[in-house]
Design a binder for these strands. Structure first.
Lengths: 153, 153
DNA sequence: TTAGTTGCAAAGGCTTTGCACGCGC
DNA sequence: GCGCGTGCAAAGCCTTTGCAACTAA
C-alpha cells in the first residue's frame, strides 16, 4: 500500500463474491460483508452500527435488505437464537457449527464433527432432499461454569 | 366418558410432569401440554387457538408465560425458524431432530442419527460443557421437489 | 439507458411488561 | 393463608413494506 493504489485489495474479493451471486456491487453491500468477515455472529444492529462508521448515510432498512439478499444468495447464513434478534455470519464455505452457551448466550464456532457438508444424514429423510445440516450444541461455556451458574433451577 | 369420572386420565400424567418440574398445576398449563402432545411444532398462535377451545377465558399472554416456564423447566423445546414465529414442541425425552423444508417451511421430526443424547460431540468444545445437540437438516420436502421449486434463483 | 438498490417514513406482527384478582398448595 | 399464576391492557422491539431518486452495469 505504498502508493495508495491498493488500499482495499481485499474488497475486490468481496466484490467478486457479490457479483458471483448475481447481485450488484454497492458500497453498503461491500461494507456489510466486511463487517461480517471481521465480526461473525453479528446482529442487524451490530452490522448497522459498523457500516455507519464508514457509510454514515446508510439506513437500517438497507441493512435488512442486504442481509436478506445475501442470505438468499448463500453469501451469509442466518442464525436465530431464542430470546435474541437474528444473527448473521459470513458463509465462508466450510461446514462449521455452533456452540451456544445457555448461561450467557455466547455463540462460538466449531468445526464440523465429521468434516464434510452435509456432514450428517438423517436416519429417515422422509423423502427430503437434504442440502445442509446445521448443528447447535447447547451447553455452558467455561466462564459460566466457573461463575457457578445454577443448573437445576 | 360415560360417568364423567375419568374423562381426562391422561391429564394426570401431564399434571405429574408439571409438578415434577416444580411448577403449579393449572388448567391452562395442562391444556398447553395437551395441545403440544397432539400437535408438535405448534406456534404460540396455534397453541392459543387450541387452548381456547377448552378454556375460552385464556389470554395470549398466559400462553406466552406458560411456554416460557415450560421451556425453562425443560418440559417443552423451543424452535426458532427463520422468517416465522417461534415453534414449540413437547420434549418427550428422546433426542429427535428436525427436517426443515426451505420451500414450504414444513418441519418434520427425525430420529437422532446416532441414537443417544447428546448424540454428537464437537471436534473442539472450547471448554464448553455440552448438554445437548440440536440438528436441523435443511432441504426440500417431497411435495416441493415434485412441484419443481426453482433451486437456483 | 435500464433495472436493481438505496433512503425516508410508516405500519405491522410478535413478544414482553405491570398490576390486581383468583386459584393451587 | 401465602404465593404463584392468570387475566386485562398497553407498550416495546424487531422487521417488513411502499415509493421516489440514485447508481451500477
Amino acid at each position: 500500500m505504498a502508493t495508495g493504489t491498493e488500499p482495499q485489495t481485499h474488497s475486490e474479493e468481496l466484490k467478486s463474491s457479490i457479483r458471483a451471486s448475481g447481485l450488484k456491487v454497492t458500497a453498503p453491500r461491500v461494507a456489510v460483508l466486511e463487517v461480517l468477515q471481521h465480526a461473525p455472529h453479528s446482529s442487524v444492529e451490530q452490522v448497522f452500527a459498523e457500516v455507519r462508521k464508514t457509510l454514515s448515510g446508510t439506513s437500517a432498512q438497507t441493512i435488512y435488505g442486504i442481509l436478506a439478499s445475501f442470505t438468499g444468495a448463500g453469501l451469509v447464513r442466518r442464525f436465530d437464537p431464542p430470546d435474541s434478534p437474528a444473527l448473521f455470519e459470513c458463509r465462508v464455505g466450510d461446514n462449521h457449527h455452533h456452540l451456544s452457551c445457555v448461561g450467557c448466550g455466547l455463540i462460538q464456532d466449531v468445526d464440523c464433527v465429521i468434516g464434510q457438508a452435509p456432514c450428517l444424514t438423517p436416519s429417515d429423510d422422509s423423502g427430503f432432499t437434504i442440502y445442509s445440516a446445521e448443528v447447535t450444541f447447547n451447553g455452558l461455556c467455561r466462564a459460566c461454569q466457573t461463575s457457578g451458574l445454577p443448573t437445576t433451577g
